[in-house]
């Protein structure tokens, strides 16, 4: 899939010199890379390399001590997660952060809450525009449900679904917001081969059909090398490699980090 022939847009997201520490523990040290519009950008690295922290910086859950993130031409150090969401950054979670007590439908609709504008009094009466708004968004959500092939569980509370389906709902909730940039934190962790194939297909379809830019963390090297256009490699919070899958395969620093190196 990683055909160099594909056309990418301009840089939509740029991370510059980001450092993040919790107390004395350094999670990220001066990391810089960029993401171009419409590409699939992978971030890989051993456990504890700071990959999830990187995503958390991009969408504002963590506030880095140094450096900045430029998104669509706007530079910032820190941002509230809900502002990031409103500006078009959606994400999924490594350890499933779904709303367990809510149905699949409500989880996805919640993903579109940021587009709903009805004042609370109209919602209380649920008439006229408030009702029309609910139904319009329901239609869009049903499209996503069809796309992810989870029609049969739409009214089931998410907490009762098997793991593989929950992963799909997580993706669906992110898609519901119609994001420009989609951050995926290990979307295939813990899946069997078949489920992984399904998930790959969904990711490629999203990228193809909606032109959504995707930033992806994944451990399965086969998947990463197949899917992504460019790969950034983190190790102990530092960027040790950045380039196309082929370049990364040949990168000595990356090989050392993964296989270990004799000193």
């Amino acid at each position: 899939m990683s055909t160099a022939a594909r056309e990418f847009g301009d840089v939509i997201l740029k991370v510059e010199g980001v450092s993040l520490a919790f107390g004395g523990v350094k999670a990220l040290t001066e990391v810089s890379f960029d993401v171009r519009e419409h590409e699939i950008r992978a971030i890989i690295g051993p456990n504890g390399a700071g990959k999830s922290s990187m995503l958390n910086v991009i969408n504002g859950v963590y506030h880095p001590q140094q450096g900045q993130v430029t998104y669509r031409g706007e530079a910032r150090r820190a941002m509230d997660p809900h502002r990031a969401a409103r500006s078009g950054i959606a994400r999924t979670f490594q350890n499933l952060a779904l709303f367990k007590g809510m149905s699949v439908l409500d989880n996805l609709l919640a993903g579109r809450n940021l587009m709903m504008r009805m004042p609370i009094l109209l919602q209380a009466l649920r008439v006229g525009p408030a009702l029309r708004e609910e139904i319009a968004h329901r239609k869009r959500v049903e499209e996503i449900i069809d796309f992810l092939e989870i029609q049969h569980v739409r009214k089931t509370p998410v907490g009762r679904l098997p793991y593989g389906l929950q992963k799909r709902v997580d993706l669906g909730r992110a898609l519901a917001a119609e994001p420009r940039v989609l951050l995926l934190d290990e979307p295939m962790a813990g899946m069997n081969v078949e489920e992984k194939q399904d998930m790959c297909r969904f990711i490629l379809d999203v990228n193809d059909e909606f032109g959504t830019t995707i930033v992806l963390i994944e451990h399965d090297m086969g998947v990463v090398m197949d899917l992504s256009d460019r790969v950034a490699v983190l190790d102990y919070g530092r960027l040790i490699g950045d380039g196309t899958p082929d370049e990364i395969r040949a990168n000595q620093a990356v090989i050392d980090a993964y296989l270990g190196v004799k000193h």
């Binding site: 969408n59 509230d80 969401a85 779904l98 709303f99 809510m102 409500d106 919640a110 992110a174 917001a177």
Partner: peptide, 17 residues
């Protein structure tokens, strides 16, 4: 839905806007 989202997983709720 926004109330229940806060209840079930507040960090995720904020992340989805």
């Amino acid at each position: 839905r926004s109330w229940m989202a806060m209840r079930d997983m507040d960090v995720a709720a904020e992340v989805i806007g």
